[in-house]
Each structure stands twice: as structure tokens, then as C-alpha cells.
Design a binder for these strands. Sequence first.
DNA 1: TCAGGTTCGTGATAGCCTCTAACTGGAATG
DNA 2: CATTCCAGTTAGAGGCTATCACGAACCTGA
Lengths: 215, 215
Amino acid sequence: MAETETNTPRERYRTQVRTEIKQHAWEQIATAGASALSLNAIAKRMGMSGPALYRYFAGRDELITELIRDAYRSMADAVRVAFEGGADVAETARAMRRWALADPHRYLLIYGTPVPGYHAPDDITAISGEIMATLLDVWSAQPPAEHATTALEADLARHRHWAGEHPAPPAVLHRALIFWTRLHGLLSLELAGHFVGMEFDPELLFEAEVADLRA
Amino acid sequence: MAETETNTPRERYRTQVRTEIKQHAWEQIATAGASALSLNAIAKRMGMSGPALYRYFAGRDELITELIRDAYRSMADAVRVAFEGGADVAETARAMRRWALADPHRYLLIYGTPVPGYHAPDDITAISGEIMATLLDVWSAQPPAEHATTALEADLARHRHWAGEHPAPPAVLHRALIFWTRLHGLLSLELAGHFVGMEFDPELLFEAEVADLRA
DNA sequence: TCAGGTTCGTGATAGCCTCTAACTGGAATG
DNA sequence: CATTCCAGTTAGAGGCTATCACGAACCTGA
């Protein structure tokens, strides 16, 4: 939600309105889902008439893209803050869960069902890369035990493009990947409400998975 | 997609049109996503004019609910067939992955971002329960090694409502749950395209997770 | 101070969408 | 043959995205 600082009052007004629009957008997403997000409805709730919002966003897609960008940025910051605060693997996982539970729709906007044909702009995929880089940092501080190289690790040694310049060995790449996929499995099912009828405590399942991940 | 057998030609015609509508709906979901599904567009592609479809479905929601029901039914059948064909845990996991990859949008319609406020009718949650029951069957044939009871297993022993009459012990409930969450994490990230820029082989990651699950 | 361009917000409009309502014409039924 | 039923039609209300032309407010520079 952070908007760059600006000078002229006009630009300050502009960014102020933009963030106000985004706030209303998040509220609407929380109550009716991203697919029901309506520029028209936001405008009316802000006391303006429909097309006014097109001065601030080129269209519905640009608004949603901006929300996705903010969400990624917020998550990348949360993970980074955890790591730099000295969090180990388990505590980083908990930080991610807290971030997800704090606003389920924000998480689902990032990792939920994508619109076919939508391609995130490069700066967003870069933030996604930041998150993976931080996970590699976290796991590098707690590297897995020595073991024979697996087929997957051989593949990861070849395709380590996504790790950027990070010097993590394939075993750490593997660890970061399953950290991501297992957490995502737990969080997305929990946030989407697939556990509700089951009545067990999702946090215990989460903690059990975190413990397993460290072993 | 299975429609009950009927007698009169009128009813046969009716169910025939219903399945034709659903086929067009799946095509539209595959190309533009579920949120862009349009009764109007389907009607036009079938050579009829808009409101005609309301003879067959009470509205857009009912059509989507029907698609969700068919998707769950298909998945439950796929898992059941695998189990009854003698599949072990690993082979059942592969059957689920094959089912998901065969039609990514069908999987995402079930397990993707839910619409806030949407509640699936009881018969659909029953099918979801069928799937869990089959997973319990699969794991009961390959029970995990003995170990001290964990906090999660104690919780599962108390809240085993979702397992119905199934006699599986808490350790098996735990196993079935993480089978589900880990597979879902892998599949939903793969199907949503979050691995595309990474270039590693998702199947190797999947197999590594399956192997880990059996250990 | 005041003339200029710039930017904001408006109403009108086109073209989608869902869904309701009244109507027509053909098929099934007695 | 007459009646009932039902598929499909058009018309229309009300929502949406998005574009356009216009008036009004604002900022800037002479």
C-alpha cells in the first residue's frame, strides 16, 4: 500500500485518492471476492460517479495488478523481516502463516486461481523471486544433513536460474521448494475453508509439518 | 458429466441439452476462467438466444455448482478406481496428479479460490468426504510405523468426525491429511503456473515428495 | 493579476452481462 | 381434436467496463 513520496499537492492528492481506491477494493474483495470487484461500486462508495476512477487506474485489470503487487511486496517484506530478525525455519514458517491469516484474501489473490492468459508484469515476478531468495537464506542458515544426490537435486543443479546469484547448493534449493509447497498446501486449504467441517486444529497440523520439515 | 437415464424423449432431450451446456461451460472456463463464464455466450454458441438457458439452469450459480459437483464426482471416482485397482500410496498420488493435469481448471474449480459466502450443498461435501475416506483406505493398507502419540494425533482422536465410520487410527488420519495437503500444495502451484519460470521438472519434485511421504 | 494549459469529475453512450416477464408455436397427452 | 405443457423468443430492467466530450477547478508563468 506504500506510495512513493511526492512533492506537489496535486500529486499528493492523486496518490491519496489512489490508496483510498485500493482500500475500498480490498474491502470489496474481502466481502465478495476478487471476481466481484467493481470500479463502479467503489466510485459510488467514494461519492464519485463511475468513470472518475479511470483517471487513477487504466481499468479494472490495472487496479487488480496493483493490489497483487502490494500483496507480494507485503509478503516479501514480512518474510525478510522475519529472517533478519533471526527467525529460524520454524519461526519463518509461522511468520508466513500469520501473514496469510491476517488477510486471507490477500494471500489467495497471490496464490489462488489465476485468470487464464494473465501474465504478471516483470516487477511482480521479481518480488516473487525475492521471496524465494529469502527462503534460500533461511535454509542456508539451517542446511539439511549430508546425503546422496537425488534425481531432483541433479535437475535443480541444472535449472537453478530461479535462485539467481544465490550460492545455495541443490539440497537447499530442494528444501526451500518443499518448504514453499507444503506451507502453501496447508495455508491455501485452511484459508479456502476446506478444513472447516473437520474441526481439528489447523495450527497443530501446521506445527507438525514444520517439525517434519526441520528433521 | 453423468446424467441419470430417463424415459420420455422430452426428458432425454432435456438432459442432452444440459450436458451440452456444461461442455461449452468447461470450454469457456478453460479459455477465460470461471469468473468469465457467461450464460449468454454459451447460448449464442449453441445457436439460441440468451434467456433460453434459464430453462435448464436456474442461473449462473447453479450451473457452476453443477460443474463443481461433476468435478468432485470425477475426482472421487478416479481415486476410488486407483485404490480398488490395488494402487499403493505412491500410485494413488500419481493417479491424482494425472487427474489434475488432465484438466487443470477442473482441479482449480474445486480447490482454487472460493467465492466468499458460497456454501457447497450437502451432497457435494459428501463427495469430498468420499475422497477422504478413500485416502484413509489407501493409508490403512500401508500404515505408518509405531511411534509416540503426538499432540496433533491426540487432537485428531478427539475430532475424527470427518472420518465417518472409518476405523483408521489417529496416525493414519494424520498421514491422510498430510498426503492431501502436500499433494495439494504441489499440484495447485504447478497448475496455477507458479513453477513456469523455474524450469525444473515438477514431476521430479512430486516423486520426491511421494517418496518422502512413504518413509 | 490574469491568461494558458493541465487535470479532475461529470453525463452520455456503446456494448457486455444476469435475470424476469410476457408471448408464440409446436409437441405430447387425453 | 382440444387442451395442456414446454422450449425458445423478444423486450426490458438494472448491473458492469470503458470511451468520449464537456465544464470546472487548479497550477503555472508572464
